[in-house]
């Protein structure tokens, strides 16, 4: 007997299983997002935007009105929609290349203006769709196709602290958190709070989700888990970084 998998109500079921690689983190993040949308009962109001990179494979993922934009440009497309129709709830979903590299000026611009949109960045430490190149989030020593001898921080910098940067520049009313596919209940909670922040019109909301790419990491299940829980966790701390009405979390708090 085969047990039907439980899918969020906001998912499209007619085109599942999804198009991501086995072991990919996107499916898990989008499951958390789907649950958050279900629980908030906002399916009729959400406009979902996805980027270039693996995230584009989600252009028909949900039972949500969806726009697939260019690399890094999902943020301004969602900004444009939100400014034109403030009653809609706009989600920009992208990878770390789209969010922190080619589209970082849009992310910064949206955060500075406190755009009432929700941006979700899946951080898998490299460019996955294009075959595993160095990203701003690549860990020191991590081998990628464009850092075949391992990332040298002296030459290419340290892993980019995207969520912390957004927290530093976003105004009061913004919500910033970092979750992980290794802690799904927590991630769902963060996504729900981020969307709630948009619903309440407080300001910008941002969630980075630590994700997995066993295809490019060349890891098995145990290795994938270890990379997220041990290696990535050493650079990217899970938790809420900025919550409206609360004192900002600091490193020594």
């Amino acid at each position: 007997m085969q047990i039907a998998p439980v899918m969020p109500k906001s998912w499209r079921v007619d085109n599942k299983p999804h198009k991501f690689c086995p072991g990919c983190g996107h499916g898990l993040i989008l499951k958390c997002l789907g649950k958050a949308i279900d629980e908030l009962e906002i399916q009729s109001r959400v406009i979902y935007g996805c980027d270039i990179g693996c995230s584009l494979l989600s252009w028909d993922f949900f039972n949500l009105d969806t726009v697939q934009a260019h690399h890094g440009r999902t943020t301004p497309v969602m900004t444009g929609i939100k400014r034109a129709r403030p009653e809609l709830l706009c989600i920009a979903y992208m990878g770390d290349g789209g969010g922190y590299s080619i589209g970082v000026q849009h992310l910064v611009g949206a955060a500075m203006r406190n755009e009432k949109i929700t941006v979700i960045v899946a951080n898998n430490t490299q460019y996955a769709m294009t075959g595993g190149q160095l990203a701003p989030t690549t860990l020191p020593g991590q081998k990628t196709e464009t850092s075949p001898y391992g990332r040298d921080p002296g030459a290419t910098g340290m892993p980019f602290q995207g969520a912390e940067m957004i927290s530093a520049i976003a105004a009061d009313g913004a919500y910033v958190a970092r979750g992980s596919i290794s802690h799904l209940a927590q991630l769902t909670g963060f996504l729900k709070k981020a969307l709630k922040n948009q619903i309440d019109g407080h300001g910008f909301s941002f969630v980075e989700a630590l994700s997995a790419c066993p295809t490019n990491w060349r890891t098995d299940a145990a290795g994938t888990w270890e990379f997220i829980e041990k290696d990535m966790a050493g650079y990217f701390e899970r938790g809420e970084i900025k919550v409206p009405g609360q004192k900002e979390a600091t490193a020594d708090a």
């Binding site: 934009a69 260019h70 301004p76 497309v77 900004t79 444009g80 929609i81």
Partner: peptide, 13 residues
């Protein structure tokens, strides 16, 4: 880039 993409968003809305 943002002006153009936001324009696209406004139109889609």
């Amino acid at each position: 880039l943002s002006a153009g993409f936001a324009t696209a968003g406004g139109v889609m809305a």
